[in-house]
Design a protein around this nucleic acid. Structure first.
Lengths: 152, 152
DNA sequence: TTTCATATGGTCAGGAAAGGTCAAAATAGC
DNA sequence: GCTATTTTGACCTTTCCTGACCATATGAAA
């Protein structure tokens, strides 16, 4: 695995531990990985760009620093929120809205969202009396989201 | 036997040992067989194409790699068979076995298989009376498989 | 207050380390 | 002999790594 990948991994883990913001010194990090300082910039520009959902600030001079902030909300937080919000029963359109939101946020892949959607549809719940479907749907949806949470 | 056949054999065995995914470096492999690197590409395009049931990913540059993943040659047939075999009711372990088979065959991704598993578990079906769960489970499972079928 | 030394971080271009493409030459199978 | 397959090499593209040089902040000295 290339060094840039290792540095990326390190920074991601750091962000995870620090709850979304990591502050570091370029020289220190370069020394830890035995590379030139500018390689840190390379990693930052290729893997922590805004399109990747990060904000990078820095300051030069004595006491300088580089701060990386995860700008797109963390998937775990979004999932947690969604799981709590589902409740004990949910109708089809509402469930679909949940899935759409999570898809939009990049927490669920298109395939996963559609798959869950299939599991929640009336066709899948044929064996459940109509008046109980909302409750069953909620159970399935929550469990799917919990699973997704655990697989992050 | 032509060298391309030898390389093919080697890669197939590698896939076998690694459980369906093999990661390699083009230069290394070329050196091992004393051939030019581009011959590896030839083997990959003629014998590990999607029609042959393989997925090939790669990355250039330092630390580059080639990854071959075995997928099912006939996902549609396997899915069709599975959908028919599920029946009107199915217990948890049997459903799990179905998923495991389809996973092994590469029809379902690990993520998809686990996701469906979560939707079929007792935790997800808490709102369904125990004696009706098998029927509900069958409905959900079949719908998920039908969905997968359509999204191929 | 101005100036200079030091401590950071930033930019950019070039070289190195992969993998990709393509067409011509060689070979194998009928 | 003819055709399809295989083999090869020249050239291309992408990604990574390095180093020289640049820019800015802080603090002490003049």
């Amino acid at each position: 695995m290339a060094m840039s990948d290792l540095i990326e991994k390190f920074l991601l883990q750091m962000l995870e531990e620090m709850g979304g913001v990591a502050e570091l010194q370029r020289g220190d990090l370069a020394e830890r990985f035995s590379c030139v300082p500018s390689q840190i910039n390379y990693v930052l520009t290729t893997r922590f760009s805004p399109e990747h959902g990060f904000l990078v600030e820095s300051r030069r001079g004595g006491g300088g620093y580089i701060r990386i902030t995860r700008v797109s909300p963390e998937p775990t937080a979004l999932l947690m929120h969604a799981i709590n919000a589902v409740g004990d029963a949910i109708d089809g359109p509402s469930a679909a809205a949940f899935l759409k939101n999570l898809l939009q946020a990049g927490v669920l892949s298109l395939g996963a969202a559609r798959l869950i959607g299939a599991a929640l549809g009336d066709a899948a719940l044929r064996a459940v009396p109509r008046e109980r479907r909302a409750a069953v749907r909620a159970g399935i949806l929550k469990q799917c989201l919990v699973h997704t949470y655990h697989s992050l």
